[in-house]
Design a protein around this nucleic acid. Structure first.
Ligand code: MN
Ligand code: MN
Ligand code: ZN
Ligand code: ZN
Lengths: 188, 188
DNA sequence: TGTAGTCTGAGACTGAGTCTCAGTGCAAGC
DNA sequence: GCTTGCACTGAGACTCAGTCTCAGACTACA
């Protein structure tokens, strides 16, 4: 009932390798769009540098617990719930996990994802991955990422501006959720 | 902090006038689209008939408590929270209000709206109003309805089908939320 | 080293939302 | 009108995701 799909087993990579602190770009994803395919490792490497800097900006450290959560979000192929975290990081107390999630969000590294069930999910911030949307299964709660074509996103961006402007509303971002039945729940 | 905007004072209309049970159409909104403007009263009148029938379909009655909530949702110009209900229907116990909300949703009369804060809101089901989206203020939590032009909705519907099909996902509905600052929170 | 500030685990706490239960209301049939 | 079966209701206990507190541990930096 609370099956959120498979998740790669938590890689206990304790490699403390640290990258040279290049220019802080607002978006690793730019590299992807420009054609160069980053491996999971390269992305993760760069990501940890960004994470450390963004945390430091708010006088926070990139500790092992926080890093473990970030690595879990990187390796997961979909937004993760608190129970996913508990399952894959059993030695991380819940209170710490929740606090880390709050802190990581405050540092702009992760964001909350509202699913169709009662459980909040978390994923890397969009400027660390790429803008995308979600398929929400109304039966099992599973959340799947989907990336619409750029042309569609331009349409959406335009409509969002128009709708917001008409109400004196200052838009910051949008989210498009598609509700329905996932493949598993469908064939039943 | 939890100010959700103004709401018309709860009309204690106890008129038990009941409409002839015309054909049950799947969508009062059709009347609107076809040009005829329904007054709030006409809409409400028709609506109560639909409400009664849909509840009866699941062996439930359209009682005064449930009707009071429906009327509040009709008169409100935006999705209402449980505290809105408590404020405008002070004699309705919370446990009953929650139960009514659950029952009304099960009967397909209302739907939940996820805001940017922790509080769930409720509004009439889309086939009783019209398909629309929401502006979510990330500062005060206010939720405002917005209706995009039909052309845009067609674009969205097409993209939704494509995205879902690629994943074996069976789409039922979608929601587009625009996050940002409302007019009040903006000028600050 | 010393010190100031951050981090952490344990567990108490909060509060939106659910559940239980005993009593009440409501319709349909006799 | 009375009976009988359900649905409805209020009160309050309960659940549990998420937050807060606090004392001790850790880190950065001088
Ligand atoms: Mn989008
Ligand atoms: Mn839409
Ligand atoms: Zn599913
Ligand atoms: Zn606001």
């Amino acid at each position: 009932m609370t099956d959120t799909g498979t998740l790669p087993t938590a890689t206990t990579t304790t490699s403390t390798r640290r990258l040279r602190t290049g220019q802080l770009r607002t978006g690793i994803a730019a590299d992807r769009d420009s054609g160069s395919v980053m491996s999971a490792d390269e992305l993760a490497g760069d990501l940890h540098g960004v994470a450390e800097r963004r945390l430091r900006r708010v006088d926070q450290r990139y500790t092992s617990g926080r890093r473990a959560i970030v690595e879990l979000l990187v390796s997961a192929r979909h937004p993760v719930s608190i129970s996913d975290i508990a399952e894959h990081l059993p030695d991380l107390p819940r209170s710490s996990a929740y606090r880390h999630l709050t802190d990581l969000q405050a540092a702009g590294l992760i964001r909350r994802v509202a699913a169709s069930d009662e459980f909040t999910r978390f994923e890397l911030a969009e400027d660390l991955t790429e803008h995308h949307h979600h398929l929400l299964c109304v039966n099992c709660g599973k959340v799947t990422d989907v990336t619409p074509p750029a042309g569609f996103e331009h349409q959406v961006a335009g409509a969002v501006s128009d709708l917001a402007a008409a109400q004196g509303f200052q838009p910051q971002s949008h989210r498009l959720d598609i509700l329905g039945l996932c493949a598993d729940c469908h064939e039943r």
